[in-house]
């Protein structure tokens, strides 16, 4: 539960901010904003596990839907599935290697768009079109990979601080 409250506020804030920014930084109908919430969700899910990952993903997704006027629960479902998937990797991967983080983010971005496409078809949501979606995917992939490098460094700092805090609390 403590881990959830470390991750959730971070993802909540990021979801709201990027939801707002997506409406502002737009060139030729394409939002030039990376999905920072997704990056932190993936990195923290690998570290904290499935339970924290899926809960933080779902609540963060709800806020993102709220901010971006999407059908409520749609992004929540996608992010929850991503958080859950990468949470399964807990203990199998170390978040210490940058290349693993980059690969994870690339896979997560593809997964986000793939799941969105499948769920949109299943739920008969006709707001998603293939070509603009692929264009968005390409741009977001590049931006996400670029942002992963500083995010990776920040994640390590937060995790180290959190570990120190927990250790100190346990000693008391």
């Amino acid at each position: 539960m403590r881990r959830f409250f470390i991750l959730f506020p971070l993802i909540a804030v990021l979801s709201l901010v990027q939801g707002v920014m997506r409406g502002i930084i737009v060139i030729n109908g394409i939002a030039l904003v990376p999905d920072v919430a997704l990056i932190f969700l993936v990195l923290f899910s690998i570290e904290f596990g499935r339970g924290v990952g899926q809960s933080a993903g779902w609540f963060g997704g709800i806020l993102e839907d709220f901010a971006m006027a999407k059908p409520l629960g749609f992004t929540a479902l996608v992010k929850m599935l991503i958080g859950s998937t990468f949470g399964l990797l807990q203990g199998r991967f170390m978040v210490g290697a940058l290349m693993i983080a980059l690969w994870s983010i690339a896979v997560a971005t593809l997964m986000k768009y793939g799941l969105s496409w499948i769920l949109a078809i299943l739920m008969r949501i006709h707001t998603f079109q293939l070509i603009p979606m692929l264009l968005n995917l390409a741009i977001e992939m590049v931006l996400n990979l670029l942002i992963t490098i500083p995010s990776f460094w920040i994640t390590r700092k937060i995790l180290k601080s959190a570990a120190d805090y927990i250790r100190r609390e346990q000693k008391i």
Binding site: S55, W58, P71, L72, G73, F74, A76, L77, M80, M123
Partner: peptide, 9 residues
């Protein structure tokens, strides 16, 4: 979560 999401959508 899935049920809630589907319900909401």
């Amino acid at each position: 979560y899935i049920a809630l999401s589907i319900l909401m959508v």
